[in-house]
C-alpha cells in the first residue's frame, strides 16, 4: 500500500511543485494521475522513487517512510518499483536485450536466469524478434514497449509509468494501455501519469487530478 500524507514539495527557486497531497493506493489498483503540464505529476513520481525528498509530509510504502530511507534501503526500495520514465531512458549503445537485462544485472540475477527472464518479457511485450535491435532502429511504440519490459522484468510490486503514451501513434496507444492493463491484472499496482483523455475515459479507472501542485480530484471514472 502507498500512503501520501500532507505531502509538499518546493523547489529551491520557491516554486511549489506539490502542496498538501493526501491519498492512498491499495495493492493491485490501477490509477491514473492526470493534469496539465507542470501540475506536479513527474515530481510526484520522483518522490515515489526517492529521487526527491518531500519538504513536509510523508510517503509511506509498505509501512516504510521513504523520507527515512538511507543508502541501501533506497536501493532496495527502487528494486521494488518498475519505472517507465517519461523520456524512456533507454541506452542507445545497448540493444533491446541489454537494456532490459541491465535491471536484472543490477538486482544480482544470474546470467542464465537473466536470459530466460528477458526472453520471456520480450514475448510478453510482443518484441521477441527485436532482442538484438538497437533503440535507434525502433519506432516510438516499440521503444515504449521496451521501456515497459525493462520496468516489469523484475516482477515489481508497483509499476509507475510517466506519460507512456506521450510519443506514440493512436494505434500503439491502445496496445500500450492493453499491456499495462495486463500487468495490473496479474496483481501489480499500476500508476500511470497521462494527458490522454480518451484513454482515461475508456478504461474507467480511479483518477487523481493535479492542478498547480494541488490535488483537485480523486474519483473513479472520467478524465474531467
Amino acid at each position: 500500500m502507498i500512503k501520501l500524507q500532507n505531502l509538499t514539495k518546493k523547489f529551491p527557486d520557491g516554486t511549489v511543485a506539490l502542496a498538501d497531497i493526501n491519498f492512498e493506493i491499495n495493492d493491485g489498483e490501477f490509477i491514473f494521475i492526470v493534469g496539465p503540464s507542470g501540475a506536479g505529476k513527474t515530481t510526484l513520481f520522483k518522490l515515489l522513487d526517492r529521487e526527491y525528498l518531500s519538504d513536509t509530509g510523508s510517503i509511506i510504502i509498505d509501512d516504510k517512510d521513504l523520507g527515512k530511507l538511507k543508502g541501501q534501503e533506497i536501493v532496495k526500495h527502487r528494486r521494488h518499483l518498475g519505472i517507465v520514465f517519461q523520456d524512456l531512458k533507454l541506452l542507445l549503445t545497448k540493444n533491446v536485450f541489454e537494456n532490459i537485462a541491465l535491471t536484472l544485472e543490477v538486482a544480482g540475477v544470474k546470467e542464465k536466469e537473466i536470459k530466460e527472464r528477458v526472453n520471456a518479457v520480450l514475448s510478453k511485450v510482443d518484441l521477441a524478434n527485436f532482442a538484438f535491435q538497437f533503440p535507434a532502429q525502433l519506432s516510438g511504440g516499440e521503444l515504449q514497449r521496451v521501456a515497459i519490459a525493462r520496468a516489469i522484468v523484475t516482477n515489481p510490486k508497483y509499476v509507475i509509468a510517466d506519460e507512456p503514451t506521450g510519443n506514440v501513434d493512436p494505434a500503439n496507444v491502445w496496445s500500450i494501455m492493453k499491456l499495462l492493463k495486463l500487468i495490473n491484472d496479474s496483481g501489480t499496482t499500476v500508476i500511470v501519469a497521462t494527458h490522454n483523455v480518451e484513454v482515461v475515459d475508456m478504461l474507467d479507472k480511479r483518477v487523481i487530478r493535479l492542478e498547480n501542485g494541488r490535488m483537485v480530484k480523486d474519483k473513479k471514472g472520467k478524465y474531467r
Binding site: V75, K76, R78, R79, L102, A107
Partner: peptide
C-alpha cells in the same frame, strides 16, 4: 552518464 543514471534509478547500489 546516462547508463549510470539508469543504474541508479533501477536500484543499482553505489558499489555497482
Amino acid at each position: 552518464k546516462d547508463e549510470i543514471e539508469v543504474i541508479r534509478l533501477v536500484g543499482g547500489s553505489s558499489w555497482q
